[in-house]
């Protein structure tokens, strides 16, 4: 297995290209993510870091340049091919948690597995295991509205792990949490990183800066070392 999971080459992202309101969000980005790294991506708002995360996470396509995931060029893939990669290789954690409000914690964690055609019985078993590994074994049948912010973020971490992804992409995972629960989430991510999960985390949180194995600074659509 190659050391590099993700490689980004000369990636440019331009919105409304050729129009008067053209907006260049990313210019000539080159980066690599290695296995078992925990990368912190820092930068002011509007710097293009979320767009970069979306492109790495196959939610968005670059205007030009290439993105390789495990050596495979994904920049020319169809919507459905990208969806399959997201389902199997990538886990997302969002600032707003983005849990489905009508589903219980268990069902939220189960969902990505069901989408990838994992048998229901197996999916439930694994979802329960994941929830107890993030410390929510007792609250699996609660709806998101019955959970605290920290608990919701634990559910979304469990959901990100559902299909045993190669990499977890987090967009300000502690941004909506108080510092105490934020610390708990960071500890959890550190633990998972030690177990071998690779993380790319967009953040302002100095605590994450401390434990990140590598830091990237983005400003005006460019990486500054």
């Amino acid at each position: 297995m190659s050391k590099t999971i993700i490689e980004v080459k000369d990636v440019k992202k331009v919105y409304n290209q050729g129009k008067p309101n053209e907006l260049v969000v990313l210019k000539d980005i080159d980066m690599k993510v290695n296995r078992e790294e925990m990368i912190g991506v820092f930068g002011p708002s509007g710097s293009g870091k979320s767009t970069l995360l979306h492109i790495i996470g196959c939610l968005d396509r670059p205007t030009s340049g290439k993105v390789y995931i495990e050596g495979k060029d994904v920049s020319g893939l169809t919507d459905d091919e990208l969806a399959l990669i997201r389902g199997q290789k990538i886990g997302f954690v969002f600032q707003q948690f983005n849990l489905i409000g009508s589903l219980t914690a268990l069902e939220n964690v189960e969902m990505p597995m069901r989408i990838c055609n994992v048998e229901k019985r197996k999916a439930i078993k694994r979802a329960k295991k994941l929830l107890s590994s993030v410390g929510l074994g007792e609250r699996i049948n609660h709806l998101p509205s019955q959970l605290s912010g920290g608990e919701m973020q634990r559910v979304s971490l469990a959901r990100a792990l559902a299909n045993e992804p190669d990499i977890i992409l987090a967009d300000e995972p502690t941004g909506n949490l108080d510092s105490k629960t934020g610390k708990e989430i960071i500890n959890l991510m550190e633990e998972l990183n030690k177990k071998g999960f690779t993380f790319v985390i967009i953040t302002h949180d100095p605590l994450i800066a401390k434990c990140a194995s590598r830091k990237l600074n983005i400003k005006d659509g460019k990486i500054w070392r």
Binding site: D79, D80, A83, G87, F92, I100, S102, I115, C116
Partner: peptide, 16 residues
């Protein structure tokens, strides 16, 4: 809409 976006983010294809 949002829920559908989430499902797509975690791997749901258009077909799904």
């Amino acid at each position: 809409k949002r829920e559908i976006g989430i499902m797509k983010a975690v791997g749901a294809t258009n077909n799904c």
